[in-house]
Amino acid sequence: MHLRYRAAYGFLAPYLLIFAVFWIWPIISSFIMSFQNTRVNPWVFNPGATWGRLFIDPAFYNALKNTMIILVIQVPVMITLATIMAVLLNSPLLKAKGLFRFAFFAPVVVGEVAYAAVFRLMFNLDFGIINKLLLSIGIPAVSWFSETPAAMSLLIIAVTWRWAGYNAIIILSGLQSIPEDVYEAATLDRVSKVKQFIHITLPLLKPIIVFCVVLSIIGSMQLFIEPMLITNRGGPGGGTETLGLFLYRQGFASSNFGYASSIAYTMAVLAILISLLNMWIGREAK
């Protein structure tokens, strides 16, 4: 090897070493593990106990179903909301933009445990502010933590609150990259503001929106903190158990690392497939 390259690799070596040990090796190791029954000592090659179990385990299907419901409802709602927020943030009429940008982004920075605790308080059956508000407009109090549809809604609300602003900021950057004179040209072309939004803004934002959707899909596939902390470990009775939580329980509560690995790979493959589908739908016409 040329001396110059050797020196370069010498400098890169610490990083490459860490990358190999903490990234590459776990990926390979967990893949191997996903074919092993890890509930016997020593571990034995038995894909039936891991990959095979996935096909017949009702708990896995429950977690998959819950994750998909959250994904299908939460991602479109959040991205729509984020787009609206971004458009409002971009409005020349809005004052104190910096403050709003900060406020929208702040939920991401808040500690997960604190945020979960606040949501648990806000949605408390008896003294939570949400139920008080509902009661004040004549809607009976909702038992957010003990009814599955309500708990599921709570999860979706929480995740949306946390990530909508983050996506809004990304979409805002996309909005700001659309040159102003394109809108001026459309104004001179007598195109109304609403039609400008539909026919100019949205198509030009498509790559950014697809990016946000893909990020959100990956995030939703891994959803863990909210069902763990807000709905009390996927409660009621597994009603909000997600794939992420199911993986955690298999891996760390039941020490079934082989099965947990096969769940992890399934999640990754699903996320990749759904994201690819999304990118294909959102692809730019040639």
Partner: peptide, 19 residues
């Protein structure tokens, strides 16, 4: 309104609709 003035404008950056 600009659209009702009966004018058309060619911009420095062309301002074509990229998509």
């Amino acid at each position: 309104e600009p659209a009702d003035r009966g004018i058309a404008m060619v911009f420095q950056s062309y301002a074509l609709y990229p998509h």
